[in-house]
Amino acid sequence: MQDLNTEIRDIIAVIIEKKPEEITGDARFFEDLGVDSMMALEILAAIEKKYKISIPEEKLAQLTTLNQTIAVAKEYMSQTNG
């Protein structure tokens, strides 16, 4: 099974049209990678769909780096799994 971190990085890479290797754990989405609010919402929706979880829109502000995004996804995946 593909590592979760790699999966999420690949999802983001497709949405923001960057090479996966450009998306390092701490690269800032808005400042370094040119992500805008629309792409951020798209990332949120894609992660929800892939992992069948629901993440509230309020969490959008926390999606600032790959590491942060993975942390938010894990938080909601653990809730879903009980």
Binding site: S37, L41, E42, A45, E48, E57, L60
Partner: peptide, 10 residues
């Protein structure tokens, strides 16, 4: 509406 935020919607 799948997802919407102040200025963006899917």
């Amino acid at each position: 509406a799948i997802k919407s935020e102040s200025s963006v919607a899917i």
